[in-house]
């Protein structure tokens, strides 16, 4: 973990209540897809943990949904603004277990960390499928970006206004794959858990105090013992999760 100052270079709305922000600065602490950063917001006491969507040597991209005060504040930031950030947090996805044909399943605001995961797996020569679920057409984002990485992408919406009608679990029932990676709401996780055919990894969300393992605020029980979502998580293996 490092505490660093970053400059906002882009902050644009890309779908309903959904913003893409690019920040430039030290990215050396980010080593795996699925890690997160913890952002200090003016006038709010706690930092806001946001997953890393993508990164390179100089920039971090995050995509966030405006759901409350913190993300509302973030959406008002302009190019050139500075941000105090704790970077390189969480365990991230373990890509070594993917097999030849991994499946990536994302739901709404949980989709962003799958982007860099997709990129990483494709660069390792994996032939992968991506299933992204949204509530409705206006919320759809990053379809093109996932496709341009070379992934087979299926979009579904709960109301059928775009792509297939239904939920991600309905789609993945009919797919064949060697392993799965997912991030999204708990209701989606439970549906996936019922139909998934292989091992996989889930990335969890929890209210955090510090984001780096000090306060024990975000702990959960697993079959492998107590874990902190911010430190030994947010990614847990299917086999260890107690639902």
């Amino acid at each position: 973990m490092k505490q660093k100052i970053y400059k906002v270079t882009e902050n644009t709305k890309i779908a309903k209540n959904t913003f893409k922000m690019v920040i430039s600065g030290d990215t050396s602490e980010i080593t795996k897809p699925g890690q997160f950063i913890n952002i200090k917001i003016n006038n709010l006491f706690l930092r806001r943990p946001i997953s890393v969507c993508d990164y390179d040597e100089k920039n971090i991209t995050i995509i966030y949904k405006v759901v409350g005060k913190g993300t509302g504040e973030m959406s008002n930031l302009k190019s050139g603004d500075s941000l105090d950030i704790l970077t390189g947090l969480g365990n991230g996805y373990d890509t070594s277990k993917s097999g030849a044909n991994p499946l990536l399943i994302g739901g709404g605001g949980g989709i962003p960390p799958l982007y860099n995961l997709c990129k990483t797996l494709i660069s390792c020569g994996k032939d992968l499928q991506v299933v992204l679920g949204f509530n409705t057409k206006e919320e759809v984002f990053y379809e093109k970006e996932f496709k341009s990485l070379g992934a087979k992408v299926c979009i579904c919406t709960a109301d059928g206004s775009y792509g297939e009608k239904g939920f991600t679990a309905d789609i993945i029932k009919n797919l064949n794959y060697t392993y799965f990676y997912t991030c999204g709401p708990m209701s989606m996780f439970k549906a996936i858990e019922n139909v998934a055919k292989t091992s996989g990894q889930y990335s969890f969300e929890e209210r955090m105090g510090c984001g780096f393992g000090a306060c024990m605020g975000c702990s959960c029980k697993t079959k492998y013992g107590n874990k902190r979502i911010c430190k030994e998580g947010p990614v847990l293996e299917r086999e260890e999760i107690i639902w």
Binding site: F45, L46, E206
Partner: peptide, 19 residues
């Protein structure tokens, strides 16, 4: 293990915990 989660809440200039 402590209490069930969520066990963190934000306040003006402070934090509530029930770890």
């Amino acid at each position: 293990f402590g209490n069930p989660t969520p066990r963190i809440a934000e306040c003006a200039e402070g934090i509530i915990n029930s770890v």
